[in-house]
Design a protein around this nucleic acid. Structure first.
Length: 271
DNA sequence: CACTCTACCTGTGCGC
DNA sequence: TGCGCACAGGTAGAGT
C-alpha cells in the first residue's frame, strides 16, 4: 500500500530514470478504465493530448504533475492518488499493456507513463491548482519540522493511531507507517495525544521523522509475503505472532480505529 | 460535533 | 479440488 515513502519513490524513479521527464510532451492518451479518471474522460484526453509536463510535486500520498495544455497559457495539474494498489511507472511505448492497466500517456521518444491498479481504487484528477486537493490535507509528514509538528499536536486530543491516519493532521502516513513509527516511539496506539508528556511528544516526532526518512532511503517498505519494491524492514506490521525484535515478546494485532493495528505490548505499554 | 459505518474494488487465503 | 466468503485498506460521504 503506497504511503509517503512509496509515493516519494515513484516520484524519484520517474525523474531519475528519465531526467528529461519534466519537459516531455504527451503524444497520446489512452484510457482503459474510465472510472480511474475523475470528471469527464473526453476532457481529460483532450487537455492532456499535446500537453507538456513541467514539474512533479508530492504532498502526502498525492502526486502533482504541472503541465501546460497544447494551446493554453496557464498551467493545469494532473493529480494522482495510488490508493491501495496503484503503480505508476515509465515503460517503453511498445511495452505490453497488462490486465490491470488503467490508463497510459504516450510520450516523446517512445516512452509511456503508465498507471496499473488491480484494485482500481486509484484516481486521477485535472485541477487548476494543487491547493484544490492539498487544502484538505495537513502539512506533509516529511516536510513538517519539529516545532510545526508539536504545534499541530498541541491542538489535538485523540488516539494516536487515529491521529496519525488522519490526513488533515499530517499527510502521508498510512496504516503501515503509523504502526511502525508508534513502535519506534514506544507508544501504544490507543494512547491519547493530550496525555503525552514532553519526552513522549519528542519521541513521536523523532520516530515519525526517522521512520519516514529511512523508508524513503530504502525506497519503501519490505513486507513479508507482500510485494513491495522497497527494503525498509518492518518491525511490527504483519508480524503478529512473531517475536518483537527488541524484547522477544509476541507482536500483537487488534482492530483499532477500524484498522488492523500491530504493536508490541511490552515495548508499547497501554498507560 | 465527533465518531462510526459503508461504498468503492479485486486478489489472497482460509474453512468446509 | 473447488467453492464461498471474509479480509485487506485510503478516502469520501452518509449515518448516528
Amino acid at each position: 500500500m503506497p504511503e509517503l515513502p512509496e509515493v516519494e519513490s515513484v516520484l524519484r524513479a520517474l525523474t531519475d530514470l528519465d531526467p528529461s521527464f519534466p519537459g516531455r510532451r504527451v503524444r497520446e492518451v489512452r484510457i482503459l478504465r474510465p472510472s480511474a479518471v475523475d470528471g469527464p474522460v473526453e476532457q481529460f484526453v483532450k487537455e492532456l493530448t499535446g500537453a507538456v509536463f513541467h514539474e512533479i510535486l508530492r504532498h502526502g500520498k498525492y502526486l502533482f504533475f504541472r503541465f501546460t495544455a497544447h494551446c493554453a497559457t496557464s498551467s493545469r495539474w494532473m493529480v494522482l492518488h495510488l490508493r491501495m494498489t496503484g503503480r505508476l511507472f515509465l515503460v517503453q511505448a511498445n511495452h505490453a499493456v497488462q490486465r490491470h492497466t488503467r490508463f497510459y500517456l504516450l510520450l516523446e521518444d517512445e516512452l509511456a507513463l503508465r498507471f496499473d491498479d488491480p484494485r482500481a481504487f486509484g484516481r486521477v484528477w485535472l485541477v487548476d491548482s494543487p491547493k484544490e486537493v492539498t487544502g484538505r490535507l495537513g502539512p506533509d509528514a516529511l516536510a513538517i519540522g519539529h516545532d510545526g509538528f508539536l504545534r499541530q499536536l498541541a491542538q489535538q486530543n485523540r488516539q494516536l493511531k487515529l491521529l496519525l491516519l488522519d490526513q488533515s493532521f499530517v499527510a502521508g502516513i498510512g496504516n503501515i507507517y503509523a504502526d511502525e513509527l508508534l513502535f519506534r516511539a514506544g507508544l501504544h496506539p490507543l494512547r491519547v495525544s493530550g496525555s503525552l508528556n514532553h519526552n513522549e511528544r519528542e519521541r513521536l516526532f523523532s520516530s515519525m521523522h526517522e521512520v519516514l526518512t529511512q523508508a524513503v532511503q530504502a525506497k519503501g517498505a519490505n513486507i513479508d509475503g507482500v510485494f513491495e519494491a522497497g527494503s525498509f524492514p518492518v518491525a511490527v506490521y504483519k508480524r503478529n505472532g512473531q517475536p518483537c525484535r527488541n524484547c522477544s515478546s509476541m507482536i500483537h494485532k487488534e482492530r483499532i480505529a477500524g484498522r488492523g493495528t500491530h504493536y508490541c505490548p511490552a515495548c508499547q505499554p497501554a498507560v
